[in-house]
Simulated assay, not measured.
Amino acid sequence: MRLLLTLALLPLAGCVTDRMTPEEELADVIGDRVAQAPVDCVSTAVLDQPRIIDNRTIVYRRTGTIYVNRLRSECPGLDPYTTLITEVRGGQLCRHDLVSTLDPGGTIPGPKCQLGEFVPYELPE
């Protein structure tokens, strides 16, 4: 019985090691794009859903531009499996705005964390 259980778990062990590190995932998202000068705000009207890379990095996409936001400090509970709650004022998402997280199935948001600058990455011309 023990042998069968061990053999059944072996395929799962390989799946765990195939996950990209946050640095690899960010590099994959950015691709061939080139960093531009940081901006303080981006319009929320044209942004796709945010993608959480790690507890300090959030990626936003707008058409061909990728915006990488590194929070001012690590945000407890911020990971790819949480829901991001963003407090937006005036139709723009700006440096110093606050975000918090909500665990799957949870009802109480986590601590508030402050956004940093938005670094746009664009395809070279």
Rank of each mutant, 00 (worst) to 15 (best):
P80E: 11
D32M: 10
S100D: 04
V59C: 13
L7F: 13
M20V: 01
P124I: 04
L7D: 01
A13T: 14
P111H: 09
C15S: 12
L47H: 03
T86P: 05
R19N: 08
E117M: 15
V39M: 01
I85H: 13
L123M: 12
T82K: 14
I30F: 12
Q36F: 05
R33I: 06
D32E: 14
G77W: 02
N55C: 11
Q92V: 06
G31Q: 14
L47V: 00
E87I: 01
T44N: 02
D18H: 10
L5D: 09
G31N: 14
Q36D: 14
L9T: 06
A8E: 02
D97N: 14
E122H: 02
K112R: 15
T86A: 14
R19A: 05
M1P: 13
P109F: 09
L5S: 12
L78F: 03
P22Q: 09
C94F: 06
Q36N: 14
G77T: 04
P11W: 06
V34N: 08
S73W: 03
L3Q: 11
Y67D: 04
Y60G: 00
T101D: 05
L93E: 00
I53R: 00
R61G: 00
L93W: 00
K112V: 00
G106S: 11
G105S: 07
N69A: 10
E24S: 10
R70G: 12
L5W: 08
L4E: 11
L12H: 08
E25K: 13
D48Y: 04
T6M: 06
T17F: 11
